[in-house]
Every structure is written in C-alpha cells, then in structure tokens.
Amino acid sequence: MKFVHETSPQRIRFATGDAAGGVAAEIGLLGAQKVMVIAAAAERDIAESVTAGIAVVLRHDEVVMHVPVDVAVRARAAASRADADAIVCVGGGSTTGLAKAVALTTGLPIVAVPTTYAGSEATNVWGMTEGAKKTTGTDPKVLPAAVVYDASLMFSLPVDLSVASGLNALAHCVDSLWAPRANPINAALAAEGARALAAGLPQIVQDPRDVEGREQALYGAYLAAVAFASAGSGLHHKICHVLGGKYDLPHAQTHATVLPYVLAFNAPNAHGAEERLRTAFGSSTGQAGLQALRQALDAPRALRDYGFKEGDIPAAVDDILHVAPATNPTPVNADNLARLLKSACEGSEIE
C-alpha cells in the first residue's frame, strides 16, 4: 500500500434528544459569549430550542440554496456588526454553507447542528454561486469545530426530503470510492456509510419517527461526509455542482437523481468500488443494490422534474468537461457525458 490520508480535526457529539445540551457544552468549550445563530425561517422554532442555553447576540435567517455571494456578504456584515465570536448553524446544507461562507472570511468557529443528511457539517468544503456559476474550494477555517447530531431533529423532515437528502449522503459514499484522493481508509468509511444509509432510509420511509432508522441514516451521513472530505470531489459531484449552480436545481434531489447514472457509467471500470458497494448493499452487484434501494424509497427519477431540459445538455457538458477529474475510472468525453445527462434528464431505465 502507498497512500496519504488526512483526518479532519473536529469534535462529534451524538446526542439524540439533547441537542440543546450538546450545543451548550460545545459553546462552553469554545468560551464563546456572543453567538451568531444561522437558521432559515422554517427552522426558527428548532433553532430557538437548540440554542436556549447559550448567549445569542444575533439570529440570522437569510438562507438561500447554493449560497449566493450577495447573501454571504450580508451575513458577514451582520456578524461583524454584532461582534460575534462564534456561529451556531441549525439546518441543512444551505444553512451550513452560509455559516462556512461567514467563517471563510472571519475565522469564526462553527458549531453545526444538522437537520438533514447533507453532510456539509463534516467537510472543509465551501461553495458559493454568482452569475449562474458555483465556485467551490477547501479551507480549514470552514470546517465546523464541532457537530451536534440529534436524530430527533430529523422527525419533522418530510419523507421525500429525507429520501433525497439520504441519497445525497449516499452519493458522498459512492463518489469517495473513485475520487482523486481515494484511499483504503476513506473507502472503508464510505462502505460502512453506505451500509448504514441502506439500512436506515427504508425504516424512515416505513415510519418517519423511527429513532433507529433516523440514527442509522445520520451515522451513515456522517461517515459519508468524512470519506468525501478526505477523497475529494469525483465525477458525480462535479456534475451536480455544475447543474446546481448553472440551472438552480435543488441540491439533494439533483444528487439523488444523477447518482445511479454515474455509478452505471463508472462501475465497469471501478471493480473495487463495485465490490464494496455489493457488500454494503448485500446485493448481487453494487448497481443492483442501489436500484433496489431507490425503488424501495420511491427515489427522485428525472432531472426534467426539477427544471433541467434536454436543450440544456450541450452547455452543461461544456462546463462539466472543464472540471471532470482526469482520474475518473471511465474516461469522460463530450459524447458519453451527453448520453449520461440525457438519461438522467429523462429518467431512463439503466441496463
């Protein structure tokens, strides 16, 4: 073996039913006295409950998908005016993304409290959009100092969004198996994350308030994000970042829709990844396992359902080709990428 693996410095606290206690403990460890709370208006009640035991100087609720630059600028200015010394973000990937955008320029430490399975809370990756282009990067300043996971906060997440968000997490697992910095350690994390997500998500569909299902999905989402943070962005994420920024497609649903087509595209030339997924799903092949899971979950099927049109494919192909990893298992060109996007647009059956 010959590889380099980097582990992110971060405290993780699983505290089902006690997010408020976990947040108070983490803020206490930071010694923060002027906390900026970032949470969308829809998460206001949860955020107030979770942050009841800390000194809040500002509650900021301008949260927008894909973090437009102007939204980030206003949040940074608000943090400066309030003289905040820490951030608590309560919500999904867009909320965590905004907290990261503030931390990127201010250096403020973040305590993240996820309410979806997005995984952004466990990575040092930031992303912002401007002029229909999404720019991403990595910086240690944006990695939350601590994450408080409370599965009970997921009870209010509708089943369809739970499925999309969970499959977004699964995409982190799959992409980590062939991303530019893939190695045996993050592959092991990704495989266990896929197993946990495949176990937990069907339980959530059957009973949205099933604690075990929610905990398994949350545990899997965390492992998925850690694997992704180490391995980097593979072809799947490069495709979805272009589509999300350029066409303002919903993040989780886009990932959930594109995933099976990227797996089918790469699987013939990624035998190690296929074997790990086969084992994780307990299926004859990784592709068969993913398809069976998607069927059980009634997963999103077609990008056209979210506003992507066949006429958008040529421009999308041009942008994706500029960022597609050279190390992708199946070499990417304009023709095979266009076929992949056409299939994902239509929701075609995968052979």
Rank of each mutant, 00 (worst) to 15 (best):
A270V: 05
H271M: 15
A78Y: 00
P250D: 07
A118M: 00
K238V: 04
S49K: 07
S343I: 13
E349C: 12
V63F: 03
A231E: 03
V211Y: 07
A227H: 12
N186A: 12
F3N: 11
G53N: 08
D207K: 02
E215Q: 13
N183T: 11
R214M: 02
A191S: 06
A75R: 05
P329N: 03
A227V: 12
G22I: 00
A292S: 06
V142W: 12
S162L: 09
A231K: 00
L170S: 07
E48H: 07
H5V: 07
D61Y: 03
K141N: 13
K141R: 14
P250L: 03
C89D: 13
V113M: 00
A326V: 11
A190R: 09
Y117A: 00
L177M: 15
H237Q: 11
R301E: 05
A19I: 04
W126C: 02
D335W: 10
E274L: 04
L321Q: 09
V163R: 08
A344Q: 07
A55V: 14
G119V: 03
N124A: 11
L58T: 01
G307W: 08
A179F: 06
R13N: 08
A182M: 12
I54H: 03
R59T: 14
L223A: 06
D319E: 15
T129M: 05
T257A: 07
G307M: 03
A296Q: 07
V142D: 08
D18A: 08
R195E: 11
H322E: 15
V111P: 05
L153M: 05
A229Y: 13
L321N: 11
V50C: 06
T123M: 08
H5T: 10
D319Q: 14
L167G: 12
D18V: 09
V148A: 02
P114C: 02
F228Y: 10
A77V: 12
D335G: 13
V111Q: 01
V23A: 00
R195Y: 09
G282Q: 02
M1G: 14
K309W: 10
V159R: 15
K2I: 15
K342V: 15
E130M: 10
A256Y: 00
R76W: 01
Y306V: 11
I46F: 02
Y219D: 05
S343A: 15
G232K: 05
G286M: 06
T135Q: 10
R195D: 07
S8W: 15
G21S: 05
G311E: 15
P114N: 01
Y222Q: 14
T279Q: 12
L277F: 07
A20Q: 06
R74Q: 09
I185G: 10
T95E: 03
A221D: 02
R11P: 13
D312L: 04
P140V: 12
A101K: 12
A86T: 06
G137P: 07
V102N: 00
T327G: 09
A292Q: 06
G289F: 02
L189M: 14
G92K: 01
A198S: 09
G220T: 10
R44M: 02
L157P: 07
K309D: 14
D175N: 15
G137W: 07
R76E: 06
S284R: 14
V37A: 00
G22T: 01
N124S: 14
V69H: 07
D318P: 11
V113A: 00
W178Q: 15
R181E: 15
A198M: 00
G31I: 00
H66G: 09
K238D: 04
